[in-house]
Amino acid sequence: MFQQFLVVLGLTAAIYMLLALGFTLIFGIMRVVNFAHGEFVMLGAYAVYVLQDVVGLDYFVALPLAALLVGLAGVLAEILIFRRFTGDELGSMIVALALAVSLKGAVTVIFGVEGPPISRAITGAVEIGGTLLPKDQLFAAAVAVLAVAATHLLMTRSRLGLAMRAVAQAPDVARLQGISPWRTYPAAFAIGCFLAGLAGALTAPLYSIEPHMGDAALMRAFVVVVLGGLGSIPGALIAAFVLGAVDAGMSILFNPTIAALTSFGIVIAVLIARPAGILGRA
């Protein structure tokens, strides 16, 4: 049972990290609370459906393509909408909610209330340490971990990452180094939405897809990010692990409803003790 716990923990935490990373990245750099984050996850799921089941592409081609398309949609959203709300936490929340409702509506109009059935490219299971693991879940977890690691490298090792961190920590001082905040904002949205789209495209074959699937995704991202400290990437990674452990443990011992209940109980308890989150600064 412990092995099963570890495996479920790994899967859950990896997806949580992926969901939360893009959300916290965008907030950290732009102070924009993207409540449409879940809809970008949903777009990723629908994109992979269209590319795989309508266009007929292989899943392994459709997956990165779907994430790229959602990243592109994120850049458009930044240029058309969000850049006007940079630094405006409340205003960005409201406009993001409006965008979320619009995207859900548009997808419902095109694809219907019920999500289309999506075919599963990866089937079968492997036995690891006496536990039977579905290959599709293992694949999703592995890709999620790789994407998180790649994002970490991008943020810590690249010129763009340096610029984004500078803008997140002190935008006026960043400008004094010749860094234009306005150029980092589309990049933040591109990466944040790419990660959201990837999460959607990865999980689409595991669960069913429907226009409201973004709500649960946003809730997960939000809980992880608030628990870890808004804007803190290490905080989000720790929180994803904690919540993944709670989710896995409680789901195995009891059921998913009690797991969700416990997760939120922990969030409330942590926020009472540390209002800025685990690694957040007030």
């Binding site: 340096l162 610029a163 961190r165 500078a166 920590q169």
Partner: peptide, 25 residues
């Protein structure tokens, strides 16, 4: 280039990264 009042280093960057940020352009 300006060395601002109150230093204004990037608090979450190392000394090396702070210095390299100056050469960003």
């Amino acid at each position: 280039a300006l060395s601002p009042e109150g230093r204004r280093l990037f608090p979450e960057m190392t000394v090396g990264e702070n210095l390299l940020s100056g050469a960003y352009a």
